[in-house]
C-alpha cells in the first residue's frame, strides 16, 4: 500500500532494542575482544619485564624500586593476608560517599546554575577558584576542623568529584537544539515537560562520561586526605610504610589503587549500560 524509497523499510527487521551502531558483526566480535585484551596486556608486560630486569641487575636501590617479587610478597601478606582490610574498607567507603555526594551535589548545583544565571554569576567563579587549590594543601585544614574520621576525606573527595559533574550538567542543560526547542514549544510543552523530555536526557548524556573523571577524583581526594592524617585508609598506609622505608608495601598500595580505579571505571560504565536509554542516551 505504501511506496517507499528504501526497500529495507518494507522488509521485516529483527528488533534490536540495544543496538549499538559501532558494534561489530557477531562473527568477529570474539576475536576482536581477544585482540583488545591482547593489546591491553602489552604495556604491563613490557613494564614488568623492564622492572624485573633493572631490579635483578641491582641497577637501582631497592628503596626506590623494589623487586617485583618483594612487591608480590607485600601484596600477599598485607592484602590477601587481610592486614589492610580495615584500611581498604575505609578508603572504599570514603570514595563511594564522596562520589555519591559529588554526583548529587553536582547535578543539583549544575542545574541551579544552568537555570538561574545570577546564582551562576555569584558562585561559579569561586567554585573554579576552589578547584585551583591544591587539595593536599587544603586537606590539613579539614583534618584540623573535623578530626581523623571519615568526614575530612569525604569532603575532599566530594570536592574533587563534584566539579566535572557540575560542568557537565550545566553544559548539557544549556545545549538545546533550536529545532528541538521549537518542537517542544509547538506541542505546548511546559517548562517541566521540556526539562523531562528534552533537557534532562541531553544533560545525562553529558554527565555520564564525566562520571569516569568524577569517580577517580573521589578516590584521589580520599587518598590525599588520608595521607594528611586519618585513622584508617590506604593513604595512611602509604605514609606509614614510606616512613619505615618499606617501598615494596608502598608499591603494593599503588597496585591496589590501580585495580580500584579499574573497578570503579568498570562500575561506572556498567551503570551507564544498564540505565534505560530514555534516561541516559547512548
Amino acid at each position: 500500500m505504501t511506496m517507499t524509497a528504501e526497500p529495507t523499510s518494507t522488509t521485516k527487521v529483527p528488533r534490536r532494542r540495544k543496538a549499538q551502531p559501532d558494534a561489530l558483526p557477531t562473527a568477529n566480535r570474539g576475536s576482536a575482544v581477544a585482540k583488545n585484551v591482547g593489546l591491553r596486556l602489552i604495556v604491563p608486560a613490557v613494564v614488568l619485564l623492564a622492572w624485573w630486569y633493572t631490579t635483578s641487575r641491582d641497577m637501582v636501590s631497592p628503596l626506590i624500586v623494589p623487586a617485583p617479587g618483594d612487591v608480590w610478597d607485600a601484596l600477599d601478606s598485607y592484602v590477601l593476608g587481610g592486614v589492610w582490610n580495615e584500611d581498604i574498607l575505609s578508603s572504599a567507603r570514603g570514595t563511594l560517599w564522596s562520589f555519591a555526594i559529588g554526583l548529587v551535589l553536582g547535578i543539583v548545583g549544575g542545574s541551579i546554575m544552568a537555570f538561574v544565571a545570577s546564582i551562576k554569576t555569584a558562585v561559579y567563579p569561586y567554585i573554579l577558584a576552589f578547584q585551583a587549590f591544591p587539595k593536599i594543601a587544603v586537606a590539613p585544614l579539614f583534618v584540623v576542623w573535623l578530626g581523623y574520621g571519615d568526614a575530612p576525606k569525604i569532603i575532599i573527595g566530594a570536592s574533587l568529584a563534584v566539579f566535572p559533574v557540575i560542568s557537565a550538567t550545566m553544559a548539557g542543560l544549556i545545549d538545546v537544539d533550536p529545532d528541538e526547542h521549537n518542537l517542544m514549544r509547538s506541542v505546548g510543552a511546559s517548562k517541566r515537560q521540556e526539562l523531562r523530555h528534552l533537557r534532562f536526557p541531553r544533560a545525562m548524556s553529558y554527565v555520564f562520561p564525566a562520571l569516569d573523571i568524577a569517580v577517580v577524583g573521589a578516590l584521589l581526594g580520599v587518598i590525599t586526605a588520608e595521607i594528611v592524617g586519618t585513622e584508617y585508609g590506604l593513604g595512611r598506609v602509604i605514609t606509614e610504610r614510606a616512613a619505615y622505608g618499606d617501598s615494596a608495601a608502598v608499591y603494593a598500595v599503588l597496585i591496589v589503587l590501580a585495580v580500584a580505579g579499574a573497578i570503579l571505571h568498570l562500575a561506572v560504565s556498567t551503570l551507564h549500560r544498564v540505565m534505560p536509554r530514555s534516561i541516559v542516551p547512548k
Binding site: 537544539d177 521549537n182 518542537l183 509547538s186 523530555h197 541516559v280
Partner: peptide, 30 residues
Amino acid sequence: PDPQVSVVFQKAALLKWYTVEQNVLLPARI
C-alpha cells in the same frame, strides 16, 4: 503555540533517546 497546529522542521528533530514510536507519541504524552 497551539497543539492543533503541528510543525515539521527541516531537520527531523527526533529525540534520539526515544524510539520511533515514543517520538511519534510524544505530543500526545505532553
